[in-house]
Every structure is written in C-alpha cells, then in structure tokens.
Amino acid sequence: MQAASVPVSLNHGTSFRTVAGLTRVTKSYGSRRALDAIDLRVSSGEILALLGPNGAGKTTAVKLLLGLLNPDEGQVRIFGNDPRQARGRQRTGAMLQVARVPETLRVREHIDLFASYYPHPLSIAETMDAAGIRELANRKFGELSGGEKQRALFAWALCGNPDLLFLDEPTVGMDVEARRGMWKQIRALAARGKSVLLTTHYLEEAEALADRIVVLHHGRIIENGTAAEIKSRVTRQLVKCRTRLRIEELMRFTHVNDVQRDGDSVEIQTSSTDDVLRQLVQADPEACGFELRSGGLEEAFLALTTD
C-alpha cells in the first residue's frame, strides 16, 4: 500500500513506517537561519507535536514538508515523494495560519471545492461531521467567528481523506471549550490511523495530544520523546537546606545535577528530590531547613527554551 515509504524501527520495538521526513535540512531567510540541519520523522499513525516558542522554526518545518519552501540543504520527503509536486500532496491535508479566506463563499462550498482536489475525498457531510461544523454549512466564511474559522480550516485539511495531516497552530485563538473539542477531533483522526503533525506553543496541547513531542528552539531540535520522558529529563527540581556537607560530597550523590552554596545553605538541582533527601539525611542527620521546589511543565518548557 505504501510502497514508496521506508520502514523504520523505533526503540518501541514496533515497526513503523516513515510517512514524512526532513533529512539534515537547513533553511535560512536571508541571514536568519530558521532551521539548522534538522532531522525529523513522522511515523505512520502517530501524532507528533512540534513544540517551541514563536520563531523556533515550527512553521518553516511544516512549509518545507508541504512543498511551499525549498530547503537550502537536505532532503524533504512525503510518502517517498517531493512535496513540491502536486501529486506528492494528494495524501496530505494542511491547516495553515491564514490571515483571511475568501469571505463570500459558504463553508460547504469551500469544502466541496477543496474535496475536488483529492482522488478519494470524504463527502461534504462526512467532512462536516468529522470537524464538528455541521451547523456552519451554509454560513459565509466572512460571517464566522475566529474559533469557527479555525474549525472550518480544519475541515478542509481533512476533507480529502488524507493519510497525513499538518496542523499549524490548530487551536490558536480558541477558547478552552473549543480547544478541547478540537483535541477530541484530532484524536479521532489518529484513531482512524491518520498521522498528524501539529505545531503548537501550548505545552498543555502537546502533552494532551501527542504520542511524541519534538521541541524546537532557534531552528534546532533540543528534545525528542514522549511528554513524560521530556519532563523527567528537563524538569528542574530543587532541594534547599542547611547542611555541613561540602559541595564535592553532595555532587557524589546519585541524581544530582548541580549544587550551589548560598551562605550556609545549599541548593541542589536534581531529577529526583526523594533520592536526594534520603541520601542527605543519611550523610548529615543534622541537615535542616528543607525546602523543595518542583518545576511544572511550564517551567520545564522555559528551561528548554531560554538561553
């Protein structure tokens, strides 16, 4: 079925197929380097979140995969083809950030038009159900609210019944309820075997949706893994206390990343506060004034992306 795609084995022990990928891709806009020799794979059936602050290179990666931009170096493939050829895009659907859409056409007309670009599209009714916009069918695009527009854009990303969907900031500008509705629809797509690459700068969204998260910063991939893996790697937990132990002794503890002395107290950076506490009390029974600080996800994200 996917003769052109390459089977790859990931550490999960299961065999996945790569449906889209960037290989050592570099892309600059003038002197500004947006992507710096990155490798990115989307595997069949997974939801991959590209996470990063504005300007990290997320949209550039998506545009390269859609054939809208030419890479300076490296190779871009979707289903084994060059996305710059229209044929290569027949199995992909995209939701881009658009300033405005022709406003005089009705939602169902837009869907009818977009579906005609694909060889085996969903029907208009199926599309509207999948995107949850049945009630918007006969509204002109210009009459929709911001959130409704996002859902309509989502509808034409999926109307061609594509195997791979690119969603660039799909829930930007949505209220909490609409966002959760969109998440449900994205999960439903994945449940039907579709692959999804979504970009977001909402951590919560990446964590709620993605099988795998790739964190981009200044055009480089700085983390790649499940939400839990990334969290455990980057979450900064701190143990603060007063102890007579010297820094060198503390550094010998397991799970200690860094120690700083501040007057008569020390700050120990660790990936496991529990382990550090046990070791501390054993080594120095008189240690006192314990304070624990555990960074949340938001903090982890900041840790990743601040210089």
């Binding site: 895009r89 995209a94 881009l96 300033a99 859409v101």
Partner: peptide, 13 residues
C-alpha cells in the same frame, strides 16, 4: 497578500 494562495499551493490542486 492574504496567504490564500499559499493554502492553494499546499493542496494537491
């Protein structure tokens, strides 16, 4: 200007 041409270019049209 609106980025609409880009949406078309991203489609198989």
């Amino acid at each position: 200007g609106l980025g609409w041409l880009e949406v078309k270019r991203a489609s198989p049209l």
